[in-house]
Amino acid sequence: MTTEPPVAPASVPKMLQRRLSLLAKAVFHAADRCIKAGEQVPTVFSSTHGEIGKSFQMLKTIGAGEELSPTAFSLGVHNAISGLFSIVYGNRQEITVLAPGREGMAAAFIEAAGMLSEGRDEVLLVLYDEALPDFFPFAPFRLNADAPCALALKIAAAGPGLALRFCRSPEARDDGEQPVQLLALARFLVSSDESLILGNPGHSWSWHKR
């Protein structure tokens, strides 16, 4: 865990580094410890807003009647970072990119669990979000990260590592969506806490160390 401004790891070729936003750098910074060049691992990305800063800049450009940057356009879509990830590591396995809502991070865990139950040995889970541009009124919803943040986890149905159980919780919670939940999960994983419950009314989930 780090709160330093993200720097792209050396695995990302220089000519690709120039195209990484702060958010993309945070994603690579986190994911780089979970994958080596050429490693084939199915991956689930999850981001509530994706490259919202980049998208917003493009909307302003359109509003001003100017032409869009082809580079920004190609990197503004929701699966842009996952595409760069696939290129950088030469990972040709299936990659899914989710945009979760009230279920928060649970959607990504369910997706990854599904892949494991289909017989995959490991799944890489990459959760990331950045702050919304000032323009978007999000109150009363809690779905705004303070800064670019990313968490990468390699999960398997069995084997070494931290044993974790994940299930639905009947508790009525108000923990916001993924951009707010992300840090809570990261802190839980490195803490001595036994369990963590996160969610929203009717959509709560719990993680238990065992």
């Binding site: 000519m15 032409e67 940057s69 082809p70 580079t71």
Partner: peptide, 17 residues
């Protein structure tokens, strides 16, 4: 220089502007 096809589009736009 090692540019790619996205660079070609971007450069085309910059030259037009």
């Amino acid at each position: 220089l090692g540019l790619d096809s996205i660079d070609a589009l971007e450069l085309g736009l910059a030259i037009r502007k």
